Amino acid sequence: MERQKAVRWLGGTLAVAGLGTWGLSLPGLLLRPRVRRVEMGGIVTLEDAVAACERTGLRGWELVAYAQRLVARKFTAYSLRNPWDTPARAFERGMGFCLQYNPALQQLLRRLGVEARLVHAFRVRDVDNPRWKWGHAWLKVRVGGEERDVCAGHPDNTPGHTRFEPVTPVHELSPLAAALSRFGSGLFGGSLEWWTVLTGRRPGLTFAPRSAVSISGLAGPEAAPVVPGRAHRTMRRLLGGLCFLSGVTASWGGVELFGWPEGGAPGFTVPLSVLEHTPFRDFFVPGLLLFSGVGIPNLVAGALALRRPRWSEVFAFGAGSSLTVWIVTEMAMLRSFHWLHGLYLAVGLGTQATALWLWRHEAPMTRHS
């Protein structure tokens, strides 16, 4: 029994942590530009970059400098909105931060036969802005017995000459530590994005194009506004309908559960035996959670979706996520499947997809109006 309780608590803790991570990441995921691949002179993947470097015929530090400039120019934007991308994937997308573009450069150099170590310092000083001090990761590259600092964070960097100075001890960064650091950076970036959502102020630390060139949506606020047409209006009505369907039925079901915790609501009798594999003894807490965590948010999201205030799609996406998580958790705890589970799982996923579609297609107008 004690072991079962420990497993349940561990599962609940992981579920809460997962939901918290997803919640923090939500604005960044929706704000992330729709860039799948960025091409630069025929170079898309790291394999393309390796071939391009080999064609130059360069050797030694000249080859390292060429690879560093190539990676620096391939990353057209500094971004904390895609921390889950691997270095290779971030290289293809052309956006990322130091724990993505420098590991991408490390992989490139190693394929070229050059020794490179990933290192980091908890604080570095920017030579162009001495007041700016933050954590940073870069490479220690060794060629012919000589080791130099190399960083793809700026095209003007050269091997041995970077635009920053470490002010705390430098340590080597293992792949596991780099992955955990990317995870932490994602949470940090997500908290900054939520700051933007709640205050309307752009912190300027989560996404910044490195050039004025518009590449598949990286143009920023200057992008032409999109005027909603018939398809947009239809999708918005669909979003409102899905949210209201979830909100009304979840609110009513929640009231029946916590109002009659023994499962004896008029016309809605549920035996307590279905809770055998859950931590609940009656339906009071599940009903309260269903009412407050799924029903009310979806009702509010439905109203917001029809009134079209800023960020209504974000709230609707979150409400749809709450329904999806509820259904998946319910099926796991009850260890059973009912056709209503499939129906409402489809409603939750449909709400998320519709909100994301509206965000993508109306974002220039709603965010920059």
Rank of each mutant, 00 (worst) to 15 (best):
A52E: 12
R32T: 07
L24V: 02
R37G: 10
G28Q: 07
L58S: 10
V44I: 08
C53D: 05
L31S: 11
A51N: 13
L46G: 10
V38W: 09
A49T: 03
L58P: 10
R55W: 00
L58A: 13
R59D: 12
E39Y: 01
P27Q: 04
G23N: 05
L30D: 02
V38G: 03
G41R: 00
V38I: 12
G41I: 01
R37I: 08
A49F: 06
T21A: 14
R36L: 11
V38M: 10
I43E: 00
G57C: 06
L24N: 00
W22F: 14
E39V: 10
L24S: 00
C53M: 13
R37D: 13
R55N: 10
L58K: 13
C53Q: 10
P27S: 07
T56V: 07
E39C: 07
D48T: 02
A51K: 15
P33D: 04
G28D: 08
V35T: 05
R59H: 15
L31C: 07
R55G: 11
G23A: 15
E54W: 05
G57Q: 05
T45Y: 10
A49Q: 02
L58C: 09
L29I: 11
R36M: 09
L26W: 05
T21V: 08
R34C: 06
M40L: 15
A49K: 02
V35D: 01
L24C: 04
P27Y: 02
E39K: 07
S25M: 13
V35P: 01
G41D: 02
R37P: 02
P33Y: 04
G57H: 06
R37T: 13
L29F: 09
L29M: 12
R55Q: 15
L30G: 00
P33N: 06
G57W: 00
V38L: 15
G41E: 03
P33M: 04
V44T: 05
R36F: 11
G57D: 04
